[in-house]
Design a binder for these strands. Structure first.
Lengths: 85, 85, 85, 85
DNA sequence: CTGCCATTTTACCGGC
DNA sequence: GCCGGTAAAATGGCAG
């Protein structure tokens, strides 16, 4: 990874710029989210409660996900045990 | 903001779901970024250093931005002087 | 916060040493945890599954906690609305 | 490791609960540490710098440790030479 | 402006 | 011994 002036350098620049573009997009979306909160607030909703609701829903989703992961692991374990391979 | 079952409730749900969709998008992009880093890494680049580079470039951009803001201010000031607006 | 040779310095040292002691304790407990995992493993249990179980239980606990927080927030909101204060 | 309802299951639960208790303790200590930092901060100290100091002291401790290990090795070697064990 | 929360970054640990 | 993923530390940003 020497020779940064040559091909590797080109390559690096490309990676960096891809990331920078993605980060811009991400920041843009974060902006959007803030705007939605602001709009909701101006419609009389409580931001704190909204955040809490969102957090809880996320947690519940994570819960389900983890349950499935766990089941998969059990199945693997049992499968391994079962096939006597 | 009482009457959560009625129109307000409807409205709230809509805000929440909009936010959740945006957060998903955001998470997706975060994923993409991780992937780009991973790809760069598998091409022999050092992630930590890349992060540093990106941070620096961002700072420089902010500096430039600030400069431009300043320039705008001056221009306005000059414009004001010039046009007597 | 100049004069670090004097009283402030004394004070700082005390904070630092308190933290260092606590971190040692924490590291000790982390050790203990590792040992329990090792012991479980040597009894034929699958560490990965154990971690998953623990994660899920933690998530569920967090869930309940968040639900309560949310309810509290609702009560506050309704209380505020209700008392016309 | 089948028979999760029987003795193995019992055993597993016990391991899990031991770990959960330890993790709680650990979390408690982490809390304590945060509090100490907060207290230090309210006394005018800079948390970021404190972290840096603690990190350095840890490194130095590790260095000393390594040195001692080395010294021990030498001592053993000398002992071996001396005693002809 | 301060505390708190989310995100990001670093470090660790088990698995291959 | 390395790699991948997971958990902890640390930093930054936002609401109050």
């Amino acid at each position: 990874m020497t020779n940064f002036g040559g091909f590797a350098g080109e390559h690096l620049i490309q990676f960096i710029e891809r990331i920078e573009r993605l980060e811009e997009e991400k920041a843009g979306i974060a902006e959007d989210i803030k705007e939605v909160y602001a709009e909701a607030k101006s419609n009389g909703f409580d931001i704190k409660i909204m955040r809490e609701v969102i957090k809880l829903r996320k947690l519940e989703a994570a819960d389900r996900q983890e349950q499935e992961t766990l089941i998969d692991l059990y199945m693997q374990a049992l499968g391994t045990l079962g096939t006597d391979k």
